[in-house]
Computed example of a mutant assay.
Amino acid sequence: MGYATAAELATRYGADRLIDLTDRDGDGIGDDPMIAQALADADAEIDGYLASRYRLPLPTVPALLTRIACDIAIYRLLSLRRMGDIEDARRRYEDARRLLEAIAKGHASLGLPASLPLDEQPALSLAAAKSGPAPVFGPDQMGSY
């Protein structure tokens, strides 16, 4: 499942900007495979964070993740350009990473609708379930009971 499409990326950053970033041969046409690869790289990075907390794929794509995917993808495309072009993209990328880290730690929400049927609710991944807080009642707390 992709978190963002090329059309969503073009809406956020402008089709002209995507052409400018991906027109390798100078024909005025953007390189669709290059855009698709940047989006796939963004998806993989997002999944790397979310997998520690949620079962993937998610049942729906929250708008928050679409924005994060676009920011990461544009950063990846800009990283192929000269250094002066990357400052704003780096800030957005670092913001996106911090937000993904907060989501992975449970400090931020994906904003998934609460009305999803129970079987469509994302569950904690096995890693998150195994690394949860210590039990409240264990041998140390119960004494000789």
Rank of each mutant, 00 (worst) to 15 (best):
residue 83 M to T: 04
residue 130 K to W: 10
residue 100 L to S: 10
residue 125 S to I: 07
residue 73 A to P: 05
residue 76 R to V: 12
residue 116 L to D: 02
residue 127 A to N: 02
residue 80 L to G: 08
residue 65 L to G: 08
residue 105 K to R: 01
residue 129 A to W: 06
residue 140 D to Q: 12
residue 135 P to R: 15
residue 65 L to T: 13
residue 88 D to W: 08
residue 122 P to L: 13
residue 100 L to N: 01
residue 86 I to P: 05
residue 82 R to F: 11
residue 125 S to F: 00
residue 65 L to H: 08
residue 121 Q to M: 11
residue 88 D to E: 07
residue 66 T to R: 12
residue 121 Q to I: 14
residue 98 R to P: 00
residue 96 A to K: 07
residue 116 L to H: 14
residue 86 I to D: 03
residue 95 D to F: 10
residue 76 R to N: 15
residue 103 I to Y: 00
residue 97 R to E: 05
residue 93 Y to R: 05
residue 81 R to H: 07
residue 129 A to L: 13
residue 115 S to M: 10
residue 131 S to W: 04
residue 83 M to I: 14
residue 61 V to A: 14
residue 90 R to I: 08
residue 80 L to N: 14
residue 127 A to Y: 10
residue 104 A to R: 04
residue 98 R to I: 06
residue 78 L to K: 13
residue 77 L to V: 12
residue 83 M to G: 05
residue 132 G to Q: 09
residue 140 D to G: 12
residue 128 A to W: 01
residue 68 I to Y: 02
residue 115 S to C: 07
residue 105 K to T: 01
residue 93 Y to W: 02
residue 111 G to H: 04
residue 135 P to Q: 07
residue 61 V to L: 12
residue 89 A to F: 04
residue 140 D to T: 10
residue 119 D to P: 09
residue 137 F to A: 13
residue 92 R to E: 06
residue 88 D to Q: 05
residue 65 L to C: 03
residue 99 L to V: 03
residue 75 Y to M: 04
residue 69 A to T: 10
residue 136 V to W: 06
residue 136 V to C: 07
residue 139 P to E: 10
residue 133 P to Y: 04
residue 134 A to Q: 01
residue 79 S to Q: 14
residue 79 S to N: 13
residue 69 A to S: 11
residue 70 C to A: 14
residue 103 I to G: 03
residue 115 S to E: 04
residue 66 T to W: 03
residue 86 I to V: 09
residue 75 Y to G: 14
residue 121 Q to N: 14
residue 112 L to Q: 02
residue 136 V to G: 09
residue 135 P to K: 00
residue 117 P to T: 07
residue 135 P to S: 10
residue 94 E to V: 08
residue 106 G to I: 01
residue 105 K to W: 02
residue 113 P to M: 02
residue 100 L to E: 03
residue 137 F to T: 06
residue 117 P to V: 06
residue 110 L to K: 01
residue 78 L to Q: 10
residue 104 A to I: 09
residue 76 R to S: 13
residue 124 L to D: 02
residue 82 R to W: 09
residue 82 R to I: 06
residue 81 R to F: 00
residue 125 S to L: 10
residue 107 H to W: 05
residue 89 A to Y: 06
residue 62 P to A: 10
residue 64 L to S: 11
residue 107 H to Y: 00
residue 70 C to D: 13
residue 64 L to P: 02
residue 70 C to T: 11
residue 128 A to F: 03
residue 88 D to C: 02
residue 138 G to F: 07
residue 106 G to P: 01
residue 83 M to D: 12
residue 70 C to Q: 12
residue 125 S to K: 04
residue 95 D to R: 12
residue 85 D to G: 14
residue 90 R to S: 12
residue 94 E to L: 09
residue 121 Q to P: 00
residue 92 R to P: 03
residue 78 L to I: 06
residue 129 A to M: 08
residue 124 L to W: 00
residue 96 A to C: 06
residue 79 S to V: 15
residue 80 L to C: 09
residue 125 S to E: 07
residue 62 P to R: 00
residue 80 L to K: 09
residue 122 P to Y: 09
residue 128 A to V: 04
residue 79 S to F: 12
residue 98 R to H: 07
residue 122 P to R: 03
residue 123 A to D: 03
residue 121 Q to E: 14
residue 80 L to H: 06
residue 106 G to L: 01
residue 66 T to H: 08
residue 118 L to Q: 06
residue 98 R to C: 09
residue 117 P to N: 09
residue 62 P to C: 00
residue 104 A to S: 06
residue 132 G to A: 06
residue 110 L to W: 05
residue 119 D to Q: 13
residue 139 P to T: 04
residue 81 R to M: 15
residue 134 A to L: 13
residue 117 P to Y: 11
residue 84 G to P: 08
